[in-house]
Write a protein that binds this DNA or RNA. Structure first.
Length: 567
RNA sequence: CGGGGCGUAGCGCAGUCUGGUAGCGCACAGCGAUCGGGACGCUGGGGUCGGAGGUUCAAAUCCUCUCGCCCCGACCA
């Protein structure tokens, strides 16, 4: 490709809106251009990178028996109603809805479990057909409340999503190991260090899930990682060892005046107990208007994702003070003692300790010596606590680290949620009807491209890992001398004849401009033809990640390329 | 959805407070010189100042409304 004709220019300066390095470099190198918030065009260079990433994903999916196909972006709402996701609070408005001319409700697919389940109904009837895995690389649309970080969180993107179908969970577990390894391979080939962590299943539902995460200070997710035993989870999901509380013989409950003590810190200091001997009462309002009380020991914090899961995925908002007052609740002085009419979801930390200080449900008063279950009842007692930096690993007791990370892939053991919802069943050996067991596995290609850049750049630009580079070779001619131009043109033809895809900088630009653009675009091998090289009947070849190049005689070029550059 | 910021040439910005000829750098076009790290000289094209109302003799500038984009949070896969 001649750069003089390449569509898409490099930019000397970063557009003002770009904050992340990957966002700046994708714009400056001419890989993408933004059309609207979270909606991007891929220019030829960016598109080639995306195609390289897709090629790697195809190879790894095919290697474990995946069958590529293609499913539509526009879906009838009916199949989304069938699985319950059309009307559920999540994904809710993230699912873009519209009507066709006949007045049918339609959606833009944000993932393809529904279409897969629908296909399974008509295509799979026997255990003899199972297991198998299908996948496609297709546009997704998710109407995000907020886009972020260039290509990191967008509304329209392509995803490689794979779906495995099994006769039983045993088969799913077996396959899960294989796709897990395939994902490890993909990220490794793309030059990113991804780690797998236990994750919440979110709107996908199902039994278990893992996310592949790349550590990044700019990441949207926070992980809980144990440096000692290797435990790793998204904090949305993470468990930890809750410290023991104060253990005493239960004493009789007593009301005490605590004027102006509305926070846990105030109360603990005023009464003279550690925060772990207090109970925190938090109120959340669901999308249907129900007020739910989340109860947790005062030294811990509530994990909203865990709480929402207890409430079947409810969309929770902290209740406003006005809402609470009109429901007869005293903000700042509430507790579960003598409070009826609300669901109480309690963290199991309330059983670690005794003689807690809790609200008296009366302005200016708290209760001492509150004990569960002696003094109050709960609807659910489970783990709803959020792991924080400094908490200890539930497995081995070491101190957890909580780095930020960007999610680049997600594996779900879906189980039978979708197949049962739409009646996708097969007959087993005994002629019994069984639901098909499913898994789904996704990687966003554009986000992966951004993360590759985040992980592979220097102050001059991108440093593409060879497998994803838009071109393997970048040929520069320096100067307008006829003999240089002729030699460069000949070399360009020659390299193409050898089967190499070459980006050829044939522009009438100064050396500095060409060098800087080459560094910015980041192709692994740079070949220079100039007066200087011609004088020695050589060319200069330089790897993007090295500081200096080396002169090699023209005659040796072929051999050197063969040994170090993939076609 | 809450908080903050920004919309002036393709990009980066000044001008807005205090109303009075729309500017600068880069990029682009032409000419010249130069040709190994974003040099240089001359000339030139490009703008309904995001949009709509309003105030005014006069609005990029003041007022009202609105649209868009970015960042933080909520949320999210």
């Amino acid at each position: 490709m001649r750069m003089s004709k390449l569509f898409g220019r490099t930019l000397r300066e970063s557009p003002a809106e770009a904050e992340l390095i990957s966002h700046q470099l994708t714009l400056r190198a001419g890989l993408v251009r933004q059309l609207a918030a979270g909606i991007y065009s891929y220019l030829p260079l960016g598109w080639r990178v995306l195609c390289q990433i897709e090629r790697i994903m195809r190879e790894e999916m095919d290697a474990i028996g995946g069958q590529e196909m293609q499913m539509p972006v526009v879906n009838p709402a009916a199949i989304w109603r069938a699985t319950g996701r059309y009307d559920a609070p999540a994904p809710g408005p993230a699912l873009l809805r519209f009507r066709d001319r006949a007045g049918h409700d339609m959606v833009l697919a944000m993932t393809h479990e529904e279409v897969v389940a629908d296909l399974l109904r008509s295509e799979v009837h026997s255990y003899r057909q199972l297991p198998f895995m299908i996948y496609h690389i297709q546009t997704k649309f998710r109407d995000e409340p907020r886009t972020r970080g260039g290509l990191v969180r967008v509304r329209e993107f392509t995803m490689k999503d794979a779906y495995s179908c099994h006769a039983d969970f045993c088969s799913l577990d077996e396959f899960y190991e294989r796709i897990y390894q395939a994902y490890v391979n993909i990220f490794q080939r793309c030059g990113v260090q991804a780690i797998a962590v236990a994750a919440d299943v979110g709107v996908m539902g199902g039994a278990a899930s893992h996310e592949f995460m790349v550590l990044s200070a700019k990441g949207e997710d926070t992980l809980a990682i144990c440096p000692q035993c290797g435990y790793a989870a998204n904090v949305e999901k993470a468990t930890f060892a809750k410290p023991a509380g104060v253990s005493e013989a239960e004493r009789p409950i007593a009301k005490i005046a605590t004027p102006g003590c509305k926070t846990i810190a105030d109360v603990a200091a005023f009464v003279g107990v550690p925060t772990c001997q207090t109970l925190k009462a938090l109120f959340y309002t669901t999308e249907s208007g129900e007020i739910v009380l989340a109860l947790i020991r005062g030294d811990l914090e509530v994990n909203l994702v865990k709480l929402a899961n207890v409430l079947a995925g409810a969309d929770l908002r902290p209740s406003s003070e006005d809402t609470l007052r009109s429901a007869g609740i005293v903000p700042g002085y509430a507790s579960a003692v003598d409070l009826s009419g609300f669901r109480v979801i309690a963290d199991d930390s309330i059983t670690l300790g005794s003689n807690f200080v809790a609200g008296a449900n009366k302005e200016g008063y708290h209760l001492k010596n509150v004990n569960y279950p002696r003094d109050f009842a709960v609807s659910t007692l489970t783990d709803i606590a959020r792991a924080r930096a400094g908490d200890r690993c539930a497995e081995c007791g070491a101190v957890l680290e909580t780095p930020r990370a960007i999610e680049v892939g997600h594996l779900f053991k879906l189980g039978t949620r979708y197949s049962e919802a739409v009646g996708a069943t097969y007959l087993d050996k005994d002629g019994q009807t069984q639901p098909i067991v499913m898994g789904s596995y996704g990687i966003g290609t554009g986000r992966l491209m951004a993360v590759i850049i985040e992980e592979n750049h220097d102050e001059h630009g991108i440093i593409w890992p060879a497998d994803v580079s838009p071109y393997p070779l970048h040929l520069l001619s320096l100067g307008a001398a006829p003999e240089v131009v002729t030699a460069a043109e000949q070399l360009y033809s020659h390299l193409q004849g050898m089967g190499y895809d070459v980006l050829y900088d044939d522009r009438n630009e100064r050396a500095g401009v060409k060098f800087n653009d080459a560094d910015l675009i980041g192709i692994p091998w740079r070949i220079v033809v100039s007066r200087k090289t011609l004088a020695q009947e050589s060319i200069e070849i330089k790897n993007r990640s090295e500081r200096a190049g080396r002169m090699i005689p023209l005659g040796q070029l072929e051999a050197i390329l063969a040994s170090s550059v993939a076609h």
